[in-house]
């Protein structure tokens, strides 16, 4: 027993060092598995406040560009209004209504909410975006986030007033995508290296892909279908599989996002419920 105490005393610094290192690694591993570590929740509120103050100053530098992007988005939406279309056939009346369920039985599926970006990074292999909108303002984890120019990422965690978004530039991010031309779907990943290149996998070799093809979100993803992800920049053949490896240039410039839209899929719960029933039957 005495020897044990002598040993501990002699190597106390080394032991303390090992304890701290193990703590760090435990934190790292636990956080990756369970994204809602309690301490990050409290710390998230504090760092979020600091970051929103900083964001207030920084946003001035991007006003011009942001204005232009939002105006473009606005014109795009104006063009889709029902009033813009004349229907020559008078027996059919085309009507778009803001009530969730209209008389023809069409359900509203996606609801858009705007949010301001208060923190953002692109230089790490695990990039997160913090937005100033949280559970009090109707956000839930699992919603998707779009920018004026296309896909941004997935909402991971929310506190009362802030939300954390896993950016598309995160090495654990997986987004279901499809080619605009042929409709083949694959998945978008990021290898953590170049923020101007994400990878599209699982597109079979039988499809003709050329540089410049547009990549959209697929109908299988949580994203509304047909949102632009980017443009194919390089085409490689993966030797080990029967698939392409496509380098895609994202349409969004991740280093300068200021305002985003959070999209809620109103039918997601119902869909998940149904799919869960299937797995129970097996």
């Amino acid at each position: 027993m005495r020897n044990l105490f002598a040993f501990i005393r002699r190597y106390s610094v080394l032991l303390f060092f090992l304890i701290l290192e193990i703590t760090s690694f435990l934190l790292l591993i636990r956080y990756n598995r369970f994204h809602q570590a309690a301490y990050m929740d409290a710390a998230g509120e504090i760092t979020g406040r600091v970051q929103s103050k900083y964001g207030m100053v920084e946003s001035y530098f991007y006003l011009r560009k942001e204005n232009r992007d939002l105006r473009n988005k606005l014109t795009d939406l104006q063009n889709r209004l029902a009033e813009n279309f004349q229907n020559p056939d008078t027996t059919v009346l085309l009507k778009t209504d803001s009530i969730p369920l209209d008389t023809t039985g069409r359900l509203r599926k996606y609801q858009y909410m705007d949010a301001e970006v208060v923190n953002n990074s692109t230089s790490l292999p695990t990039n997160y975006i913090t937005i100033y909108r949280g559970s009090k303002q109707g956000l839930e984890p699992g919603m998707v986030v779009l920018g004026p120019k296309g896909v941004i990422g997935v909402l991971l965690d929310v506190s009362e007033n802030f939300g954390t978004v896993m950016s598309m530039l995160h090495r654990q991010s997986r987004i279901s995508a499809s080619l605009k031309k042929t409709g083949e779907s694959g998945r978008i990943e990021w290898d953590g290296m170049d923020p101007h290149k994400v990878q599209l996998r699982d597109i079979p070799k039988s499809v003709k892909v050329v540089k410049g093809d547009t990549v959209l979100t697929s109908p299988y993803s949580d994203f509304p279908p047909g949102i632009v992800i980017g443009v194919v920049e390089q085409v490689f053949l993966e030797k080990s599989t029967n698939n392409y490896l496509l380098q895609v240039r994202p349409s969004t410039d991740f280093s300068s996002i200021r305002n985003v839209f959070v999209v809620k899929n109103l039918q997601r719960d119902e869909q998940l419920e149904l799919e869960k029933r299937l797995s129970k039957k097996k």
Partner: peptide, 10 residues
């Protein structure tokens, strides 16, 4: 806590 990678820099 800022970069949301608890333990990495630590």
């Amino acid at each position: 806590v800022f970069t949301k990678t608890p333990g990495m820099h630590a």
